[in-house]
Design a protein around this nucleic acid. Structure first.
Lengths: 240, 240
DNA sequence: CGTTAATTTGAGACCATTCAATTTCGGTGG
DNA sequence: CCACCGAAATTGAATGGTCTCAAATTAACG
């Protein structure tokens, strides 16, 4: 059977948590889809819309976001490759938030029915998807804690810890570099701070020798120090 | 077959979103369980623990919560009857947050395996559970927005709007009264504010004639006014 | 009716914001 | 390769929303 390897990373990620049979893998790899490119800042999903297809992020990053009536913006989550952008909207019918592409990104667009059929037919796959959903929720819960109860320095530090942990699943090491093209304004919208204050806190963390953040790439110089500054415990990521 | 009506409210709620066949209903109603009572403030679930059973809230209220190393507490969600307290922990293996009983509450404790069997056997039931999970996540996302980007008055107002909407699914009306025994300290921990400032904002909302909040019960006097103060849009609750 | 928890009030301190200006960076065309 | 441009990052000073710390009052409960 002709199989397309665009979906292989998804199989790889799911396999770490769930035993997938050969049939499971084949069923995933032969899902129908079309590729699409989103430019930086392009909307992948819009609040209020009713999608008929599922969008799987293959390359690049994206973020969930909500806009307030006063023009404010809150970023709710960052999406990394092999994550679905609009699963909730596909199941519940209507999107309750927006998804924007962080950088230029590549996605696979899969018919909702195909994914749902897979979900009904293959227990292991549906368990993997459910676990994805639950971990997603766990991350958002930690964001509530971050934004609600940590001071600005810890907030930024915690967000950076989370990003680094998710980008390098197998334990982040000191000095390691991550490609993550985020602006300070976006970090501000993710932490509930202003861009100005976000800038000052980043400078503080740099001055303390904890991080090195230049446009597009993050390097953690002192993982232990950053973890302490953030009060970070990666239990909620459920990646071990 | 002898069926126990303790689980009937769960069937009723799920039926609003999903068509449940007679067999589906029977399967739910005949789930094995034992009843348990939790006192006010008792822990229903503890971070780090690995539950073997699922806890379904039948009467009273509960809340999800995380503690910080500096002693701070952030409330992440309120649970109302017919909601599961520890589904994520049962699926992912370990609890990543705490659940406490808000008032004296009654729960049904169901063996994990029984619920999982049901989940595998009955497509409609697992769709209902999945939708629950997704709506849960949507609510938490809105909390991130609330805590991250709204000022203190709007934050309190929004939380009250959400509670009222969830307690009276079929559209809240002016002057209606809800039983919700929450303290101002808990409202503070849910909104990321201090108890003192929460008190002042509640007074503001009262002075404006929007609410009437006495210990244990909430009455919304001006639903439209409160909605505007909160910038509230109930789309994310997905209850229509 | 006594005791403890919850709510309320006041005043001062502080963290983060606001507003504005400047500098640096990244990309583009000459 | 340099000059230019807009976006992003940085700096400064003043304002302000929320916090902190205490004390007083009220409500809940046995």
């Amino acid at each position: 059977m002709s199989e397309n390897l665009h979906l292989a990373p998804l199989v790889r990620r799911w396999s770490k948590r769930i035993d997938l049979s050969h049939e499971d893998r084949q069923a995933i790899l032969t899902l129908p889809f079309r590729l699409e490119i989103f430019a930086k800042d392009a909307y992948v999903m819009r609040e209020g819309h009713q999608p008929a297809e599922c969008t799987l992020l293959l390359r690049g990053f994206a973020y969930r976001q909500k806009l307030l009536s006063d023009g404010g913006r809150q970023i709710i989550a960052f999406l990394v490759p092999t994550e679905f952008a609009d699963l909730p909207a596909n199941v519940l019918g209507t999107a309750d938030h927006n998804v924007q592409s962080l950088s230029r990104s590549e996605v696979a667009i899969i018919p909702r029915s195909a994914l749902l059929d897979l979900w009904h037919a293959r227990p292991a796959v549906r368990m993997a998807i459910w676990m994805d959903t639950l971990i997603d929720a766990a991350i958002v819960r930690e964001w509530v804690v971050n934004v609600g109860r940590r001071d600005s320095r810890a907030r930024i530090a915690h967000l950076l810890c989370e990003i680094a942990s998710r980008l390098h699943v197998a334990g982040a090491r000191d000095g390691e570099m991550f490609d993550f093209p985020v602006t300070q304004e976006q970090l501000a919208d993710a932490t509930g701070l202003t861009p100005v204050h976000t800038n000052r806190m980043l400078q503080t963390l740099r001055r303390e020798g904890l991080i090195q953040l230049t446009s597009g790439s993050l390097r953690i110089l002192d993982w232990q120090g950053l973890r302490e500054a953030a009060d970070f415990d990666d239990l909620y990521l459920h990646q071990s």
